[in-house]
Amino acid sequence: MSGKTRRAALLLWLALPAGADPLAEIVILGEVHDNPHAHLEQAAALETLRPTAVVFEMLTAAQGAKADADRSQIAQAWAASGWQDFDIYAPIFDALGEARIIGAAAPREAVRSVYLEGAAALFGPEAARFGLDQPLPDDQLAARIEVQFAAHCRAMPRDMMGGMVAVQRYRDATFARAALKALETYGPPVAVITGNGHARTDWGIPALIAQAAPEVTTHAIGFVEKQTEMPFDETRLIPPTKREDPCNALTKN
């Protein structure tokens, strides 16, 4: 889509009827992955937003293309992704309308290669655009290592967390690039379905979009089970879901 066409699409989108609240060109909808309430809230947001395209963290580009080409193949594409129970995500797909389905998950082999080759090498020529060619500031790196250490139940050596931070940066940049490409191709608004950790505004998808394309507006909503220090443009509390302590499997070993 050319710049002129993109501007025209944006003006058309802004002329929504009363009651439709245009938030930004790219709206990032965070989630707690296993919480059905998060996905119901995301679905409601999509029904209001009426996006041109929805970018999914969970599907690869090939899986997304399969689901987009034939909506009867959505469940099969989801199963191939190895992601969580499709039933709790089904409301999101029911709310898509005419939105295109975009898969943004990096292939597993690429994610594994980040540990050996680094995020910039795997990402390709646009690495500098998304800041992957530069090390993180020391304070941010330390904070992100602690986040990963806690997320892995403090059961793994802290010195392994640097590689996991690199993977997180790679995945955030991959999702941001997919969202920008969808915006350029289909026009606004574009939605992104992703975990809350990727939706945070300080170093997640919104921050990388701001670096790569500062003219693009974003709005990040975190659907969270309790108050959190993670920054979002908007935070919405959802009822917690019952689950076994995820640390049990790691700490008992």
Rank of each mutant, 00 (worst) to 15 (best):
Ser2Ile: 06
Lys4Thr: 15
Arg6Glu: 10
Ala9Cys: 11
Leu11Arg: 15
Leu14Arg: 15
Leu14Asn: 10
Pro17Val: 02
Ala18Gln: 12
Ala18Gly: 03
Asp21Pro: 00
Leu23His: 08
Ala24Lys: 02
Ala24Ile: 00
Val27Thr: 08
Leu29Pro: 01
Asp34Ala: 13
Asn35Phe: 04
Ala38Val: 05
Ala38Asp: 07
Ala38Lys: 03
Ala38Pro: 03
His39Glu: 11
His39Ile: 11
Glu41Lys: 14
Ala43Asp: 09
Leu46Cys: 10
Leu49Asp: 00
Thr60Ile: 01
Thr60Lys: 03
Ala61Arg: 10
Gln63Trp: 04
Gln63Arg: 03
Gln63Leu: 08
Ala65Ile: 08
Ala65Tyr: 02
Ala69Tyr: 02
Arg71Cys: 11
Ser72Asp: 15
Gln73Val: 01
Ala79Met: 11
Ser81Cys: 06
Ser81Pro: 01
Ile88Asp: 01
Ile88Arg: 07
Ala90Gly: 02
Phe93His: 05
Asp94Leu: 11
Leu96Cys: 01
Arg100Thr: 04
Ala105Ile: 00
Ala106His: 02
Glu109Leu: 12
Val111Met: 09
Tyr115Phe: 13
Ala119Arg: 02
Phe123Val: 10
Phe123Ser: 06
Ala127Asp: 07
Arg129Thr: 03
Gly131Asp: 08
Pro135Lys: 13
Pro137His: 14
Asp138His: 11
Leu141Met: 15
Glu146Trp: 05
His152Leu: 14
Ala155Met: 14
Ala155Tyr: 13
Pro157Phe: 12
Asp159Lys: 14
Asp159Trp: 15
Asp159Leu: 12
Met161Phe: 12
Gly162Leu: 11
Gly163Glu: 05
Val165Met: 09
Val165Thr: 09
Val167Gln: 07
Val167Glu: 04
Gln168Met: 13
Arg169Cys: 06
Arg169Asp: 11
Asp172Pro: 09
Asp172Cys: 15
Ala173Thr: 04
Arg177Cys: 01
Ala178His: 05
Ala179His: 01
Tyr186Trp: 15
Gly187Lys: 01
Pro188His: 04
Val190Ile: 15
Thr194Leu: 11
Gly195Met: 12
Gly195Trp: 07
Asn196Cys: 09
Ala199Arg: 00
Thr201Gln: 04
Asp202Phe: 04
Trp203Ala: 13
Pro206His: 07
Ile209Tyr: 08
Pro214Arg: 08
Val216Ile: 10
Thr218Met: 03
Thr218Ala: 05
Gly222Glu: 03
Glu225Leu: 01
Lys226Thr: 11
Lys226Leu: 08
Met230Ala: 13
Met230Cys: 07
Pro231Thr: 10
Phe232Gly: 00
Phe232Arg: 00
Glu234Met: 10
Pro239Met: 14
Pro239Asp: 12
Lys242Ser: 14
Glu244His: 13
Pro246Lys: 13
Pro246Asn: 13
Pro246Gly: 06
Pro246Met: 13
Thr251Met: 15
Thr251Asp: 07
Lys252His: 15
Asn253Asp: 13
Asn253Tyr: 12
